[in-house]
Design a protein around this nucleic acid. Structure first.
Lengths: 339, 339
DNA sequence: CTGAAAGCGCTTACAG
DNA sequence: CTGAAAGCGCTTACAG
């Protein structure tokens, strides 16, 4: 009720509301003297344009949707942090959509929910979308075609070169790590992944397989539940029989579980068994021994994705944004879990 | 461009757009026959009202702002998950504001940034705000007075009984845990906290102090950096000299650091030293020995906060929402770090 | 129960 | 460089 409107500013400045609007949106079109006067009044009154009205009139909402599968996984929260900081710098607000955390088993239901979600996102009148989905499939890709605003896939690998995306080259990362361990003289190298298939993790597996193949080594992929209580049981059964020289684990928290079980069985790390995780989360540092992990700068990824989306949203009809597919660099943080 | 508008629905149904609008907002005012016809067409066309227009016309945006200090801390992400799920159920969208992660040292700057933030939040035309701030002070409380929509403090303790809030009784939780350990015959009980003062943690300290006082025991509060690399140094210096029977640590990750250092110094846990954390995060389960922790159901807290906010937003002028201050129950998850 | 019309607070061609 | 006016897509009294 006591919200200041553009009329109030115009009245106080003795100009028409059109001029105030211009100061806000096209300051170069206003005479410096009047502009400064109006700017001063805007500041004094603490005027902030009503976003709904602005959005309706200009069909630009200066809002971006962030669609995530859930927030609890530390990687996702960190990406969103990066997005948020970059959005603030660039003057965009965020709409947050947490996509279905249910219906995991029934793919059909899930796809329907996903369609629903896109409907809501589109209707929420945002200027662009940052989309994070670890289980991105071709079905999801198809849904993108009907979205009338730019979408940037974030940490969501997709082979289609026409879809904007910012990610990490997980294939190359896993390949590099595997090759490095081979070069250090290890032969029995396992890859440990979740049963559930995440696009990112499948890329890691592929990179691992490629490196093993090139070295003529026998690959072995262990699939376990993503749940700590369950996978520790599997790890125990497994490690009671045999263990590799090196285990490359698709994510840190699972790598820590693996280490914990190995130690319980008196398998010495790193002398008898070396372990490498992915993501370099806090788990890596709090584990004992501290976990070597592939650091994937996920905060930066959020920033870059927002940057890319901004250029997509703000590009003129005739221009074209190049470099639509970007990779963030990774690096390996060596700690005590390898020799 | 190919977005369907209310006009299109009205045209297809052979009614005026007012009637379509009524079907959406006050279905009881429309004759069932026409209502069903219109609803069918809405479904077929996949019509979704433009939120900006709706918001402008009704001065209700069905959007709620979520203001958080940052997302990376697992507790906060989990609260937001709870908020998001509840918001979806209740038909609200979310606007996400990640408050200043900078200017920590300069309180004046920070307050100014906070004012700025509230300006943006208010101008973003949301119907209500869920506000999370671990460093909530009286200055922050004052800023709330000028906010023209309901605000629910979430996991943000505040003594003012007129401000809606959903939290956990950290005082009672810490008091209870301390008393329990005293009852089990322990005498030398320390409280370990961060140097930085968080409102929640200060309540934990108060509860601890009260229990110690009642038992006539000498309290001791250890303050360390919140950063793992730093606090592990402090812990080492400390533990080389002496250790308590029980350490109650304000958060899990710090408790895990403490355990790690103790084990390095061959202090046996739990025989010589027992450790209790707060929050029952995944760190607790991945630690060795597994950490006993006060489980604070933070997801539920998000849900309850959103519920409370909804009743605040939707309450009629004449009604009043009671039960404006809510506590979520906590419980202690006993694991291997205590006897 | 339904329609015509005003209005929400802005933006942006169009004149001048 | 500035103002008057139309319009963005809805909602909601007000009549009927």
């Amino acid at each position: 009720m006591n919200q200041i409107k553009i009329y109030d500013v115009a009245g106080a400045a003795g100009v028409s509301l059109a001029t105030v609007s211009r100061v806000l949106n096209h300051p170069e079109k206003v005479k410096p003297a009047t502009r400064e006067k109006i700017e001063k009044i805007i500041r004094e009154l603490g005027y902030k344009p009503n976003l709904n009205a602005k959005g309706l009139a200009s069909s630009k909402s200066t809002t971006v949707a962030v669609v995530v599968p859930e927030l609890t996984r530390s990687s996702i929260a960190e990406i969103v942090n990066g997005i948020a900081d970059c959005a603030t710098r660039r003057g965009y607000l965020l709409r947050l959509f947490v996509a279905g955390r249910n219906n995991y088993d029934n793919p059909e239901e899930q796809l329907k929910a996903e369609k629903e979600l896109w409907g809501t996102v589109v209707a929420s009148s945002v200027d662009g979308v940052l989309y994070i989905n670890d289980e991105f499939t071709e079905e999801h890709e198809k849904l993108l075609e009907d979205v009338p605003m730019p979408v940037v896939l974030t940490n969501t690998p997709c082979s289609n070169p026409n879809i904007p995306q910012v990610s990490i080259d997980y294939y190359r990362a896993a390949y590099g790590v595997t090759k490095e361990m081979i070069d250090r003289g290890n032969k029995k190298i396992w890859m440990i992944k979740t049963i559930r298939n995440y696009a990112m993790n499948n890329l890691k597996v592929d990179g691992y397989l490629q490196a093993m193949k090139e070295a003529n080594l026998e690959p072995r992929i262990i699939e376990v539940s993503g749940l700590t209580e369950r996978n520790e049981v599997s790890f125990k059964e497994l490690l009671q029989k045999e263990h590799p020289d090196v285990a490359i684990v698709v994510r840190d928290s699972m790598a820590v579980s693996f280490i914990n079980v190995a130690r319980l069985l008196h398998i010495h790390i790193p002398d008898e068994l070396q372990v490498i995780g992915f993501q370099n989360t806090r788990y890596a540092e709090l584990a004992r021994p501290k976990l070597t992990s592939v650091n994937t700068p996920i905060y930066e990824m959020g920033e870059k994705a927002m940057d890319l989306l901004t250029s997509l949203m703000e590009c003129e009809e005739d221009e074209e944004v190049t470099n639509i597919k970007q990779f963030i660099n990774y690096n390996v943080i060596e700690r005590d879990s390898i020799k």
